[in-house]
């Protein structure tokens, strides 16, 4: 799957980082930063969970 994030929308709650720190991080400003824009296998449910939990709608995925 392909992951995208919208830094202008992110409100920095960090829910994505808590859900999957291997994919999501926060930059020095506290705004979401993707460590990778692709996820496979075991990571996919985690990423979907992060998209669902993110309070601001900053995250989205496109399934392959």
């Amino acid at each position: 799957m392909r992951i995208s994030s919208d830094q202008d929308v992110c409100t920095g709650a960090g829910q994505c980082v808590l859900t999957e720190p291997g994919v999501f991080a926060q930059d020095a400003r506290g705004v979401v930063e993707l460590r990778t824009d692709r996820a496979e296998g075991e990571l996919m449910p985690k990423v979907r969970q992060a998209v669902f939990i993110c309070p601001s709608g900053a995250l989205s995925v496109e399934e392959d």
Binding site: T11, G12, G14, V17, L18, P21, A25, Q26, A28, R29, G30, V31
Partner: peptide
């Protein structure tokens, strides 16, 4: 709201905390 919140979120990020 987002301008005001933007100014403080770096102090509450997961890493910072």
């Amino acid at each position: 709201h987002s301008a005001a919140r933007r100014r403080v979120i770096s102090d509450f990020s997961v890493r910072r905390v």
